[in-house]
Design a protein around this nucleic acid. Structure first.
Length: 521
RNA sequence: GUCCCCAUCGUCUAGCCAGGCCCAGGACGUCAGGUUUUCAUCCUGGUAACGGGGGUUCAAAUCCCCCUGGGGACGCCA
């Protein structure tokens, strides 16, 4: 097989859709799997709808996913230009040739006439297409209209009868009756070329060997094949991917799901998780594994193995997969990934994060296994940065459960006085956090070793308090958690105590005591 | 309406091309337990599918036909 060349050819008429992203990904994986080239071409023939903004969105979307193009915008290549709008001059010559060979013809019909014809055709034979009125116009008539300046489009003349066969790498051999094919428009009345013309010609000129795109383009494939054959060009291989469907089983739409790729980035979905997930939509790694890297996928990817049926995007599974990828990150990676959200939510500045990176890293690590996307982090850790707390319903209930709780909290606070708890951020010395690796792992307890009490030591002390007071450990722990965080959920309590630091712990327990006292009045 | 495509647990899929090893495997979800100071993680177990009907065959999820169901296309959009 000659050098494989594939392309992703989005039109910059809107933000990159996740369906488009998956198409790009499959093109990319196929190219890499066979050592071919992946080309990015911008199909901006529709000037009216194309925008710079959409282009920028598409490029950053692809880059975010790690889909790197070998030729295309900002990269160049020997088959440029890679913007269709800059290739306009290349089409006319071939349209003229088709015109002179009667493989194309001028159509002078008004849009209204075409519409009527289409409806009539549909009623008569079910074929909703142009009635080919102008195809048999006598030459004199054509000349006359031309001299009168009647606007016209140029249509491709479907030749012959019977069936055409199109070999699709995914769908297999498909037969289409030529009667089903419309004499499609190649050139608008203003002379500008349309998608099926540009796309097919560009693919030929760019020596594209495989066209991998969504199934909705299947009929365009037939049109393009016929055009290329009429021109004597080589027809590339086709592979039409089944669609991604929404929960309702229909083509994925904005209404049903989040379809804008960059929205996923902006909400903190890890890019590699999304790539893994997209790969699984229509393809299987093997019978057992769900989690794998792009590299691993590329090694065994084969176009022929792509499924034929559409697949529904399961948001629950996506969320699970994101969680898996987040848990795999090192604390340094996780901090780097989450930092922008901390800044965005006003929890800390970049400088503060850099300055106290160990504290932040530990802080985030404690919640790492509790989130599935980065944007879930700020609400969970916001309390560390607050002066006063509000208790949620359950937390207040835990705090207010029995009369003895105040006494318990006081006893615990007193016991803390005998231990060295690190100061609260931002006055926190670096040693407090470089030495202690959080979250505390009971199987691999950290030895601490510094001057501060470790979370494990804090826990032992608390257990002693509970024992001295003759209550179960839970009776002590739940109110403390409520007093310290305002909620009933979260990381290991003594990790929180350690991270929160002396001043904040004392202040919060004091505030809880006060709230309980007021309530009692 | 016409044409094209598709059809395994609720969802993503393995198995189908080269029929028996499949009273159908994995994963998500869900349910029940376990670990745990809560939540989460983690672990164990359960739940749940070859759309229907005909063939072919000693044997069909796998091959053929019909039906049904679903999706896509029918633009001077891409």
């Amino acid at each position: 097989m000659a050098q494989v060349r594939v392309r992703f050819a989005p039109s910059p008429t809107g933000p990159l859709h996740i369906g488009g992203a998956r198409t790009a990904l499959y093109n990319f994986m196929f190219a890499r799997s066979v050592g071919g080239s992946f080309i990015l071409r911008i199909d901006d023939t529709d000037k009216a709808r194309s925008t710079e903004e959409s282009l920028a969105n598409i490029l950053s979307g692809l880059r975010w996913l790690g889909i790197d193009w070998d030729e295309g915008p900002e990269k160049g290549g020997e088959f440029g230009p890679y913007f269709q709008s800059e290739r306009m001059s290349r089409y006319q010559e071939r349209v003229d040739r088709l015109l002179s060979e009667n493989k194309a013809y001028r159509c002078f019909c008004s849009p209204e006439r075409i519409q009527e014809g289409r409806e009539r055709m549909r009623e008569e034979c079910g074929l909703a297409m142009y009635d080919r009125h102008c195809r048999s116009l006598p030459p004199e008539e054509v000349e006359k209209k031309l001299s009168e300046g009647v606007p016209y489009t140029v249509r491709f003349a479907i030749q012959g009868e019977g069936k055409v066969r199109i070999q699709d790498k995914i769908k297999g051999l498909v037969e289409v009756d030529l009667r089903q094919m419309d004499d499609w428009v190649m050139l608008r009345a203003d002379g500008s070329p349309l998608y099926n013309l540009c796309s097919a010609l560009d693919d030929a000129d760019m020596k594209i060997t495989h066209i991998i795109r969504g199934e909705e383009h299947f009929m365009n494939g037939v049109k393009q094949m016929l055009l290329l054959e009429a021109l004597g060009e080589t027809v590339p291989e086709f592979a039409h991917l089944p669609l991604i469907l929404g929960k309702n089983g229909k083509k994925l739409s904005k209404r049903m799901a989040q379809t804008n790729l960059l929205d996923y980035r902006d909400q903190g979905y890890p890019a590699n998780a999304l790539v893994n997930f997209f790969t699984l939509l229509g393809w299987g790694f093997d019978a057992e594994r769900e989690i794998f890297s792009v590299q691993e996928a590329i090694e065994r990817f084969r176009l022929e193995d792509v499924g034929k049926s559409g697949s529904i995007l399961d948001e629950d599974k996506l969320a699970w997969m994101c969680g898996m990828y987040i848990r795999k990150q090192s604390r340094e990676e996780f901090l780097a990934n989450v930092a922008p959200w901390l800044v965005k939510e006003g929890l800390a500045t970049e400088e503060q994060i850099t300055e106290s990176k160990d504290w932040f890293a530990n802080l985030l690590a404690c919640d790492q296994e509790r989130v599935r996307k980065y944007e879930e982090i700020p609400p969970k850790i916001a309390h560390y940065f607050k002066d006063s707390l509000e208790y949620d319903k359950k937390a207040w209930k835990n705090l207010n459960k029995s009369e003895e709780i105040s006494a318990l909290l006081e006893a615990w606070l007193e016991s803390l006085g005998r231990l060295r708890l690190p100061p609260s951020w931002p006055n926190r010395p670096r040693e407090a956090d470089v030495q202690v690796l959080l979250p505390t792992d009971k199987d691999k307890p950290n030895t601490g070793g510094g001057e501060y009490a470790t979370p494990l030591e804090l826990e032992e002390a608390a257990r002693a308090v509970a024992e001295a007071k003759g209550v179960g450990f839970g009776k002590l722990v739940h109110p403390i958690r409520a007093a310290l965080t305002g909620t009933t959920m979260g990381p290991s309590l003594f990790d929180i105590v350690y991270l929160l630091g002396k001043e904040k712990v004392e202040k919060r327990v004091g505030a809880a005591l006060k709230a309980l006292a007021q309530k009692a009045d």
